[in-house]
Amino acid sequence: MINIDRLKMATDGVQIEDANLIIYLEENSLVSTEDYVPTSNINKKQIYKTALGILEDIANSPSTMKNFKSDDISISNFAENLQSRIGQLEKKIRQIPNDDAVIQNDSGSNFTYMFTK
């Protein structure tokens, strides 16, 4: 799987042209045709940051923030749900450690150095 495919998974349901997805990826120092490395926290974090950028751009579009009603179906609170998802994604990004700042101890838990000499 390559980076652009992983980004499409993260933004499932959002219709964006590949050319625009490539720009979003490049803004976060990712190359669309490079392999996605699921074991790399940095790669994962960059994909999530890219997805976050896409959602923030959608949130900045006033036309997507209105309520819709079609026949018997009502789509409301889109802005609230989108902001909630943005908040969840920001939290997830903060919780992913950087590869180079984390060591694993004998019990398997991660420990991040807060202070250096």
Rank of each mutant, 00 (worst) to 15 (best):
I73R: 12
Q83F: 11
I47D: 02
D35R: 13
S29V: 10
I54S: 00
T64S: 14
Q83E: 12
I73A: 13
I23F: 09
G108C: 07
N110I: 05
L30F: 04
S32N: 12
E26V: 06
T64Y: 15
N81D: 14
G108Q: 06
I47H: 05
N28H: 08
L7D: 03
S70I: 15
M65Y: 07
E56V: 11
M9P: 02
E17P: 01
L52Q: 05
K66N: 14
I103L: 14
D106L: 08
L89T: 08
S29F: 02
D71G: 06
D35T: 13
I54W: 03
P38C: 04
G87F: 02
A101Y: 07
D72L: 12
N81A: 14
I42Q: 09
K92M: 08
F111P: 05
N60T: 11
Q15R: 14
M9L: 12
M65L: 15
Q46E: 01
N43M: 06
S74P: 03
I93E: 02
N20G: 01
E27P: 04
G53F: 05
I54P: 03
I16C: 02
F111H: 12
N110Y: 13
N60C: 07
I23R: 09
D99E: 10
S107C: 01
K8N: 00
K66L: 14
D106S: 13
Y48S: 08
S32K: 07
K66E: 14
N28W: 06
G108K: 03
I22C: 04
I58E: 08
E90H: 12
N67I: 11
I93C: 08
A10E: 00
L55Y: 10
I42D: 08
Q104T: 15
Q88N: 15
T11D: 10
Q46V: 10
S32A: 15
D100G: 14
S40K: 06
S109I: 12
N67T: 15
N98G: 03
I86V: 04
I58G: 09
E34K: 14
N41F: 01
A19L: 10
A79F: 01
P62I: 07
L55V: 09
G13E: 10
R6C: 02
Y24G: 04
K91G: 09
R94T: 05
V37E: 03
T50K: 01
E90L: 07
F68C: 11
N43K: 11
G13T: 01
S40C: 04
M65T: 04
Q46D: 01
D57V: 06
I93M: 03
N43G: 03
V37F: 00
V102D: 05
I54A: 05
N77G: 15
N28D: 06
K92R: 15
N67F: 09
D12Y: 05
S63F: 14
